[in-house]
Amino acid sequence: MSVRRLDPNQPDSFEFTAENKVWAEGQIKKYPDGRQASAIIALLWRAQKQVGGWLPEPAIRYIADFLDMPHMRAMEVVTFYTMFNLSPVGEHFVQLCGTTPCWLRGSDELKAVCKKVIGDERQVSSDGKLSWMEVECLGACANAPMVQVNDDFYEDLDAENFEKLLTDLREGRPVKVGPQGGRKGSEPAGQLTSLTEVGGAD
């Protein structure tokens, strides 16, 4: 965690697409009358998606006005939750877990790969395809080390398959989501050690 500030380069304006506007109004309807502000996180998330992975200042203002709430309240929410990015990210935004289990299983090596393939943390690569950031635990410790790229988890990584993954993403080649090492989900590596009768029945 560190102090998060708005990006110095901001677009002039922001507006939901017609489709997102309809969706946003649907979200507001989930809450009682006068409680429309409760929809803020959903709307901010949608705005972030629309912009391409980050929230510019006009979008924060737009959402606050959309929900009839003070601009400052929206700013508080945006700066509180680290999932809202305040600066542009790459087309493939890599969130690299550096918390203890991943770290023990070699996340430092993945970090080195990121530095090599993409560049410095929080910097978008010159082709705009990739950027990366170290984050806290994403809850896939059984398949450590892992990264999240946009909405998908990539697990059981090592320097080799991670570099290949990044290159494939950059080149636009299809990639496999989930564990990269060949096991299914978070099953034990190798063979099942318990529940063998149930698990092996497929």
Binding site: P70, M72, R73, M75, E76, F80
Partner: peptide, 18 residues
């Protein structure tokens, strides 16, 4: 409602919008 707290934890800061 112009003053608010941005950030969180140790990095919380009191400020006005922009």
């Amino acid at each position: 409602p112009e003053i608010g707290a941005i950030g969180r934890g140790e990095d919380m800061e009191i400020t006005t919008y922009l």
